[in-house]
Computed example of a mutant assay.
Amino acid sequence: MYARAAAATTAALLGAGALALPSTAAAQTPADARVAHKSGTSLAHKDPTVVAHRGASAYAPENTLAAIDKAAWMGFRWVENDVQRTKDGVLVIVHDDNLKRTTNVEEVFPDRAPWKVKDFTAAEIAKLDAGSWFGEKYEGARVPTLTQYMNRVSRNHQSLVLEIKKPELYPGIEKDTLRVLRKTGWLDHHHVKNKLVVQSFSADSVKKVHALRPDVKTGFLGTPAAADLPTYAEFSDQINSTHTSISADYVSAIHRLKGAHGKRLEIFTWTVDEAAAARRAAGFGVDGIITNKPDVVRQALRD
């Protein structure tokens, strides 16, 4: 998830002028957060949900089955992933829009630069090693398809924040994603109500998911200006912002609104890997913390 992409989608939604970040965000300190939390400026409630970013990606190769298995082994129920589409229309779990960083694609297909996900078939991607870059222990790990991934999340009794990545590259990916979720049993009442969030940096993509399946919980990735939050609340249940861009006042502004399903608008913040940052975000009253190091965040919240 990248802040630059969030700014682009925000501008596209609301016109040529980019939205300003809340002015109080950068000035907040951990002490500010504690004072705000005690005074009620930020809504005090249960500890935030800890979400393992791309699985427990500090400890296993990101977006692989090994990463979500590691999160499950560590005791974390919620995981996050990134979905893109292959040349032949198969949805796969990978963050970057090319395969260079997390696979051996340059070795296997040396003449296929720039190695974009959309230029490879699912069968070709299935040949790639997506684990060796992280460590010898994970040699042979593969890029999972969304179907494989959902089956493993189900087996692990986990819940999912699913990010539709770069939807501008994959027209119709929202419908494709929902189709796979339906086929793997993830669009029944239980899963939709308790175990699934679909998010994107693209406001248009979030709108499409909401239009296609109004019952599915959705999140917009970014930090819109507080004055513009009601616009996003029309089609989102969450505003999911970088932890460095938020403040106690901003979290309170989110919580004062109702999201697309008539419930309090939520905020999940990312990517929080340090104890001090986790305590700061929790002090603001965020609903969820997305992290590569879920154990560090869990311990910080306990402390």
Results as ranks from 00 to 15, higher is better:
residue 98 N to H: 08
residue 109 F to Y: 15
residue 85 R to Q: 15
residue 84 Q to H: 10
residue 54 R to P: 06
residue 92 V to M: 09
residue 127 K to F: 05
residue 130 A to K: 09
residue 130 A to C: 11
residue 98 N to W: 03
residue 153 V to H: 05
residue 155 R to Y: 12
residue 115 W to H: 14
residue 143 V to E: 15
residue 44 A to H: 06
residue 73 W to G: 15
residue 186 W to M: 14
residue 174 E to T: 12
residue 163 E to T: 03
residue 170 Y to F: 15
residue 117 V to A: 15
residue 154 S to H: 04
residue 74 M to F: 10
residue 145 T to H: 05
residue 177 T to N: 08
residue 167 P to C: 06
residue 152 R to D: 13
residue 57 S to K: 02
residue 184 T to Y: 04
residue 111 D to A: 11
residue 182 R to C: 13
residue 85 R to Y: 11
residue 164 I to V: 10
residue 45 H to F: 10
residue 100 K to R: 13
residue 55 G to I: 02
residue 63 N to V: 09
residue 133 W to R: 00
residue 47 D to V: 05
residue 144 P to C: 01
residue 127 K to D: 09
residue 174 E to H: 11
residue 100 K to M: 08
residue 166 K to N: 06
residue 149 Y to F: 15
residue 128 L to Y: 12
residue 147 T to H: 02
residue 48 P to C: 09
residue 90 V to H: 01
residue 109 F to Q: 10
residue 91 L to F: 02
residue 98 N to G: 02
residue 168 E to W: 05
residue 76 F to A: 14
residue 60 A to F: 05
residue 134 F to W: 09
residue 148 Q to F: 01
residue 55 G to A: 01
residue 50 V to C: 05
residue 88 D to I: 01
residue 71 A to S: 13
residue 120 F to R: 07
residue 158 Q to I: 15
residue 130 A to I: 11
residue 153 V to P: 06
residue 133 W to D: 04
residue 163 E to I: 03
residue 157 H to W: 08
residue 167 P to L: 01
residue 126 A to W: 03
residue 58 A to K: 12
residue 151 N to F: 05
residue 78 W to P: 12
residue 82 D to T: 01
residue 148 Q to A: 05
residue 58 A to R: 02
residue 137 K to A: 14
residue 131 G to Y: 06
residue 104 N to Y: 05
residue 78 W to Y: 14
residue 124 E to N: 09
residue 50 V to W: 07
residue 138 Y to V: 10
residue 160 L to T: 02
residue 133 W to P: 00
residue 181 L to E: 14
residue 143 V to F: 13
residue 92 V to P: 09
residue 97 D to H: 13
residue 141 A to S: 09
